[in-house]
Design a protein around this nucleic acid. Structure first.
Lengths: 290, 290
DNA sequence: CGAATAGTGTCTGTAAGACACTATTCC
DNA sequence: GGAATAGTGTCTTACAGACACTATTCG
């Protein structure tokens, strides 16, 4: 029964460890590495951008890849080791490429990728994380990367019609960035984009892409940019205000109107809702995908 | 950059070192293991049940735990090794406790748990999977378990009011099963239940819990059991038929009416929809959780 | 002034939930 | 016959989307 457990546990740990390790053929323990990769998304210049680093070493040398790395074992007091939580490792990898100025508004686990052969060197199980941040300054390549850059996702040629739809800007496609990502990172990025688009519908995630006092129009631009679809300004406005806890009014207004004219607008801050009801559903998700 | 970086060299060295030392001292391995755990759900006796195994070895000896184990490296031709994909490992662990008769209708990755200390022996990163199956015969304990059983989730005392709501059956709480689960498996199970409840809303997941020709009422019982809420039979009926691709009529009817009376009902099979539109939303999800 | 935008009003179609009702079958 | 159930009809309310309109501000 469970009652004996607490007294047994401590004493048994050492014995169990030996027993445990002896019971398995060492060859059954493949050299297996655990890494974290981060899909960091932001909105810059009106486009959805992802943080990429350029690999300095083979394999996939010179290719762009998601920031990430091995889960570390940090040195602790008295020769012990302090082990990193997975989310901490993800936050660290992100900070290494962006500097301390990035205010990550949201960090969540995406999925884990462990198909044999996804890394040609060895078996690597990679836990992917998804991060969102408001508009950021340039990225700063960390020690292990040749370069780090925010790259418009539309320029990566993922087979996604919607992302390209709104990006007619000639300069959006940066030369040199439309190459295949390293490893299976294109897949991971695609999964991250799916997740982000989906979470805009039923969580206040969009507020993680804007800075504190924001207008309804700025929020709408987030939705339009991530979804790659134009939304009706009037209906969107009414809808956002009708969802309890999505935004709170600050009482203030912008100092001036928009650069292309129009009246000044009211300012808002994120509300306390964790789930949106009613949800803000995408207009053109192909209904009932068969 | 995951899977790479200037620590790449260090990683290779470490990997080679491990391989070499493995033959001599298993304890020289990097103290990091990858396991898969499976949250297998089914509906038995009108209750949502989860597959649990009783641990034969410490730690948590005699405690119940989710089926799972280490990701293996299988022997392949000519001394090579065939490495298991994560989903394959999950399917294998599940089959070991249920025998070949389980028809797993659905297997998807849930989340990965890697907090240091979650396993007292060593650093273990566990990739959890979520499986659904129609009503199944008794479980068969595999080699590394003392026992394996389908256990009503309501009997596990998870802090979830809804699961207990419909389970007034006196016999539902089996003596001996209302104990704490090993490791952080209670948390993993709770996450799995959340996911399952949520996916019933916008995917045809419910059809994975019933066998091929089913009635609308059987489908409704799935929703009621998983959500722990009574649904209006009439409205549910109309709603299910109104969602394109959820169910297809077989043209047949049941041979007899229900055991407590009522007319015979039409039979259906799963449709080809992958996403439900409009969705079948839970009535009493606390709206806009703050 | 003309163009663009913030914000509101109104109408229509769809869908959810409440309630009622009929027909069928078991006990 | 009485109770339970399958399936349908109808009404009310909520909400999404379309369209129109006013007021405000930029250039």
């Amino acid at each position: 029964m469970a009652d004996t457990e607490s007294t047994e546990a401590a004493a048994d740990v050492r014995a169990a460890e030996c027993e445990f390790l002896a019971a398995y053929d060492p060859r059954a323990f493949p050299p297996l590495a655990v890494t974290v990769d981060v899909v960091a998304l932001t909105i810059r210049d009106g486009a959805l951008q992802v943080l990429l680093v350029q690999r300095a070493e083979p394999p996939y040398q010179h290719h762009w890849a998601l920031p990430g790395g091995f889960v570390r074992q940090l040195p602790g007091p008295k020769g012990t080791t302090i082990e990193e939580d997975l989310a901490e490792a993800a936050a660290r990898e992100l900070a290494e490429e962006t500097g301390p100025r990035l205010r990550t508004a949201h960090l969540e686990q995406l999925q884990t990728y462990g198909t044999p052969g996804r890394d040609p060197r060895m078996r690597v199980v990679s836990v992917a994380y998804l991060a969102f941040a408001p508009e950021m300054p340039e990225a700063e390549p960390g020690s292990d990367a040749a370069d780090a850059q925010w790259v418009p996702v539309a320029s990566l040629g993922l087979t996604d019609a919607r992302t390209d739809a709104l990006t007619d800007t000639p300069g959006a496609r940066q030369p040199g960035t439309s190459r295949t990502l390293a490893f299976d990172h294109a897949r991971i990025l695609a999964d991250g984009l799916d997740r982000a688009r989906s979470k805009l519908e039923y969580t206040p995630l969009a507020t993680a892409f804007v800075t504190e006092p924001f207008t309804i129009s700025e929020l709408r631009e987030v939705y339009e940019t991530v979804w790659g679809e134009r939304l009706h300004p009037g209906n969107f406005h009414r809808k956002v205000l009708s969802v309890p806890g999505l935004v709170d009014s600050t009482g203030d207004m912008t100092q001036s109107g928009g650069s292309r004219g129009g009246p000044r607008s009211k300012l808002y801050r994120p509300g306390d809702a964790k789930l949106l009801h009613p949800a803000l559903l995408r207009p053109s998700r192909e209904e009932a995908v068969r």
